[in-house]
């Protein structure tokens, strides 16, 4: 048997189930919910996402390349006197620099998010229960190297915490 999954209809029972499983050192593979459950990432022990760093790096790259490009165009590539402004007209370069920073930062974080989460047009991720995007909460355990005895124990854990249903999958 590969996976056991428990199904809940209440946020509170989901949270307590996750806590009790973790207290018993049972590894949770994933949890599915219709909306972001407050406090679930703490209960599951998920680490903070590094995604904001992608935005920061993207923003820095955008700002530097945006500014650098304008400076290069006006001082090296094709210097033109425009309205008596200095060639290196720093205040004039700020708007485009800013826009480039925001554009790069936004795309950096969104693309990293989609890539990291295996989301994208045509992605075919496994769906445990179609109601998990409606009003159900699903806890999935990876039980590839667990014998039947232990699986029974896990099942009773699920039922104790108020699961409506428990399923095995091979």
């Amino acid at each position: 048997m590969k996976e056991i999954s428990g199904y809940y209809d209440k946020e509170a029972s989901l949270l307590s189930a996750v806590k009790s499983l973790r207290d018993n050192n049972i590894k949770i593979k994933d949890v599915f919910s219709p909306y972001p459950v407050h406090g679930l990432d703490h209960a599951m022990g998920l680490r903070r996402s590094w995604l904001p760093r992608a935005a920061f790096i993207g923003g820095a790259v955008g700002a530097i390349s945006g500014f650098g490009f304008q400076a290069w165009v006006f001082t090296r590539a094709y210097p033109i006197n425009i309205g008596g402004k200095p060639l290196m007209a720093v205040p004039s370069f700020i708007p485009v620099t800013f826009e480039c920073a925001i554009l790069f930062a936004a795309f950096a974080i969104v693309l990293s998010y989609l890539f990291k989460s295996h989301l994208g047009a045509g992605a075919d991720n496994k769906i445990y229960d179609e109601r998990a995007t409606d009003d159900r909460f699903v806890v999935v355990l990876d039980t590839a190297d667990i014998d039947n005895n232990e699986a029974e124990k896990i099942k009773s854990k699920f039922e104790d915490s108020g699961a409506m249903d428990v399923k095995y999958q091979d």
Partner: peptide, 30 residues
Amino acid sequence: FGWTGSAKHWQRFEVVSFTLAGLAAPLVLS
């Protein structure tokens, strides 16, 4: 995009929304 509602996805989703909000707020002014 193959959305499943996984806890990890939700966690990232919230972080991404919040960061995008932080980027879009000055953008809207600009």
